Simulated assay, not measured.
Amino acid sequence: MTDYIEEQRNELEAIESIYPDSFTVLSEEPTSFTITVTSDAGENGETVEATLKFTYVAKYPDEPPMWEIYSQENLEEGDMEEILTLLKQQAEENLGMVMIFTLVTAVQEKLNEIVDAMKNRQEEEKLRKEKEAEEAEKVAFQGTVVTIENFLAWKAKFDLEMAEFRRKKQKEEEQAGKLKLTGKQLFETDHNLDTSDIQFLEDGGNNVEVDESLFQDIEDLDLDEDDPDFDHLETDSDED
């Protein structure tokens, strides 16, 4: 007759020695405990983790234990479903033998596969983005193919922009007074221009004022008698 209690006790001691840092007893009646399983680190240090809860039934190991995912990190819903399916499969294959170590090992391998799949998805995403960037660069380099339709659309838009540009420029020139006037237009706008020169001629230019202080009597000047021009200056003075 199988001593289920003894087999369960012996396995529990072995499990505790194998997983000293991740094994935790939750209760003794019924015997319930958790084991935390962590994947190996991926290329960028990413990991996934699952804490499995096992509970012995009275006739374990002839009947499978109960299990559940007690907690997890970085696992998706689909990943957890696959882990539960894996536990059921392994339990059915190992009925009649203590199986906790086998179940935990299978989950460990599964977590490593999940990390590898994450790595592959990341690489695929990287390649996809690189391909999209290359395609975008090709399109930018080749430019847009000119058709009659898009040329006519561009031409209509260009004509509107140029008309608006000319209108604004003309308005700015008018406001700034930059439009040039002809000589006739200047006289028409300022009638003083046609009388100022005539008035000057009628006055005979006699209205020009002279500052007589700028000139001195020739006799007051200190001249050098040895200067060859002295006689000339003296003669001029005598004639006056």
Results as ranks from 00 to 15, higher is better:
2 T>V: 15
4 Y>H: 14
5 I>C: 04
5 I>P: 04
5 I>R: 11
6 E>N: 14
14 A>L: 12
15 I>P: 08
18 I>L: 15
19 Y>R: 05
21 D>K: 07
24 T>R: 11
29 E>A: 10
31 T>E: 06
31 T>L: 12
31 T>I: 12
33 F>Y: 06
34 T>L: 00
41 A>N: 10
41 A>S: 13
52 L>V: 10
59 K>I: 02
62 D>H: 07
63 E>L: 06
67 W>D: 09
69 I>K: 12
71 S>G: 04
71 S>K: 01
74 N>D: 06
74 N>I: 00
76 E>M: 13
78 G>V: 03
81 E>R: 03
83 I>H: 00
87 L>F: 01
95 L>T: 02
101 F>W: 01
103 L>F: 04
105 T>C: 01
111 L>H: 00
112 N>V: 01
113 E>G: 12
118 M>S: 08
119 K>P: 00
120 N>C: 02
122 Q>M: 12
126 K>G: 03
126 K>E: 11
128 R>I: 02
129 K>W: 06
129 K>P: 04
131 K>W: 04
132 E>S: 07
133 A>T: 08
135 E>Q: 04
136 A>H: 03
142 Q>K: 05
143 G>D: 02
143 G>N: 04
146 V>M: 13
149 E>P: 07
149 E>S: 15
151 F>S: 09
155 K>H: 07
156 A>C: 06
156 A>T: 14
156 A>Q: 15
159 D>T: 09
159 D>A: 13
159 D>K: 15
159 D>I: 14
160 L>Q: 06
162 M>F: 14
166 R>I: 09
166 R>W: 07
167 R>I: 04
169 K>Y: 15
171 K>H: 07
171 K>Q: 15
172 E>L: 13
174 E>T: 08
174 E>H: 09
177 G>R: 11
178 K>V: 05
179 L>C: 03
179 L>S: 04
180 K>T: 11
181 L>Q: 11
184 K>V: 11
185 Q>L: 08
185 Q>Y: 05
186 L>F: 02
186 L>V: 12
187 F>C: 09
189 T>A: 14
190 D>I: 01
193 L>Y: 03
194 D>I: 13
198 I>G: 02
199 Q>E: 14
202 E>F: 05
203 D>C: 08
204 G>K: 08
205 G>F: 13
205 G>M: 08
210 V>T: 05
211 D>W: 05
212 E>L: 15
213 S>D: 09
214 L>V: 02
215 F>I: 00
217 D>W: 12
217 D>M: 08
220 D>N: 12
221 L>W: 15
221 L>Y: 14
223 L>Y: 09
225 E>G: 04
226 D>M: 10
231 D>C: 03
233 L>A: 00
236 D>A: 10
